[in-house]
Amino acid sequence: MKSREAHGLRALLSTCKALLKKTMDLANEARGLLMIFGIRLPRTVKHGSFDGVARPMIEMDDVLAHALVPLLDARMVLYQYFLELDRRVKRAASQDEVCVRLMTVPGVGPIAALTFKGAIDDPARFKRSRTVAAHFGLTPRRYQSGEHDNPGRISKAGDKDVRATLYAAANALLMRTMASSLIKSWGMRLVRTKGRGRAVVAVARNLAVLLHCMWIDGTEFRQDQVGGRV
């Protein structure tokens, strides 16, 4: 059983994610309806800029305005609530000692830190850090029969939100962060030899181990770290 604090963190993150999804759904609905009238919005519009781009096009036509302005208004309300929850997420992470430490790892932001902390809750539940990666389904399945012992795809067991968050953090570490580190160099070598998808999964698996080790040890990230104590 997780603590009340852990359930509260997970509820905050789930609500924030749900509001963003609904905001995107309404934006896509508006795009689809506008296309019927021959109006195409730019393919990439930031969430905060969508209303400013779409509303002038809609308000020029009374028929469109009558049908779509309420949709834009509803989307804007949802987006404002999302921004408020997003601020709460960042504030919660910045005020939590464990999350501040976890965020010293390149690619790990407030959402990743809070998601990991809320899912683990008590790090002492795992005797070995390596089992954390297996708990969240980031270790390969093994197919054994006679003399054959072949690793397969990752098991995808456990909390899919944590797995997706670790994958996103690993992708950001490899593709977006500019700071050099041993774990990034190791991951980039895997990109060249195994491909990007497998490399990101491998880095996500190491991040799960590393974050748990840092939590247990009370240490911050060092550039010479690849994985943690296993």
Rank of each mutant, 00 (worst) to 15 (best):
L138Y: 02
D149F: 00
F126Q: 15
G152Q: 09
I120N: 06
A133M: 06
I120D: 06
D122E: 15
R130K: 08
T131N: 15
L114I: 07
Y143S: 10
T139P: 00
R130I: 05
I120E: 03
V132C: 02
A133K: 00
A134V: 06
P140A: 12
T131M: 11
F116T: 00
S145N: 14
R128M: 09
H148G: 07
L114E: 09
S155P: 06
G152P: 15
L114Y: 09
F126K: 15
R153S: 12
S155E: 10
V132G: 01
K117A: 12
T131H: 12
K127P: 01
P123W: 00
F116H: 00
F126I: 14
A124Y: 08
I154W: 07
G152E: 12
V132R: 01
F136K: 06
R130V: 04
H148P: 03
A157S: 11
R141S: 08
H148Y: 12
F136I: 08
G146L: 04
T139S: 09
G146F: 00
R142S: 11
F136T: 08
A133Q: 03
D121W: 02
Y143I: 13
N150G: 04
I154V: 15
Q144A: 15
F126Y: 14
S155D: 09
H148S: 15
I154D: 12
D122Y: 05
S155H: 05
H148R: 13
A124G: 11
G118I: 02
G118E: 05
R125P: 07
N150T: 15
V132Y: 01
R130F: 00
A133C: 08
L114V: 06
G146N: 03
I120V: 15
D149P: 02
E147T: 13
R128Y: 08
G118F: 04
G118P: 05
H148L: 13
L138R: 01
R141C: 11
S145G: 08
N150Y: 09
P140W: 03
F136G: 06
A157H: 12
I120R: 04
S145Y: 07
H148D: 15
H135I: 03
D122Q: 11
G137K: 08
K156C: 07
